[in-house]
Amino acid sequence: MTNNHPIPQVPGFTAEELVSKIGFCAQLKGGVVMDVVNVEQAQIAEDSGACAVMALERVPADIRKDGGVSRASDPDMIAAIQKAVSIPVMAKVRIGHFVEAQMLESMEVDCIDESEVLTPADEEFHIEKRPFKTPFVCGCRDLGEALRRINEGAAMIRTKGEAGTGNVVEAVRHMRALMSQIRSLRGQDDHVLELRARELRVPTELVAWVAEHQKLPVPNFSAGGVATPADASLMMQLGAEAVFVGSGIFKSGDPVERARAIVRSVTHFRDPRVLVEVSKGLGEPMVGIDISTLPEEQLLASRGI
């Protein structure tokens, strides 16, 4: 018998907050969270086996195409999706826009994504997430971004990837950076951990916890550019515990089949035979973008660091 709490203690959180917020995120493991823009898509996602939906007005590919300021979605649209499905409903707020977050909490959205996909509202501060009862998920490109978000109260971390491109290369880069930085902390003495903590601008206890346990103290998911079942399995094999799919499903030729296929590819992420089976005859994936052709100001991942 162990007397250790199954949910790790994170500095600044009460045990109860942790178990309720991180416990919620843990229930999504091994699943697929799908971006949906209306009730019909939400129902397709639920019927296909999504473990949650992300309600938003435009998928990242369209946000990218349309330009302009992208904000939290119309409450009516979110409420309609909450009514239409029984799985958890998440929604996005702009980085630093704590009022949009207060609105989503009052609507009892199950999880809030403080997302670089929307136009940031604050160039210096992220939302102070601990006072909220609703769990937050935040994006990261590396360990520093992940731990700063956790220190602000995020209960789940996802890679940023480069949303709306259908190109998984950035999500891979971010997951590899995160995992190798976690490994580099192994066996370091207190002095080194203290220096790292100062560099990353987080409490030493948080860095020491990661060094000892060799993982993040909250669930670690992947997002940004996943377009095929193989992409989803790739992110799982690189260390993700679940996958967000944005434009990849409803911008493809056959969303229903693709949604089902990606759900199976996450459950059987180590079984290439299942991947072959689900990848057959899937139709056209979303059109991808070579990220190196994008000008610097169109990169979403460099928002909110």
Binding site: S20, G23, Q27, E105
Partner: peptide
């Protein structure tokens, strides 16, 4: 018991579990 907003840890009344055992209810 409601959406995630209403999730949390609650006291359990039980003759068979150790006194003070609580349960975490998530959606």
């Amino acid at each position: 018991y409601g959406r995630q907003y209403h999730s949390g840890t609650f006291d359990l009344a039980s003759d068979v579990l150790p006194k003070g055992t609580t349960g975490t209810f998530i959606r």
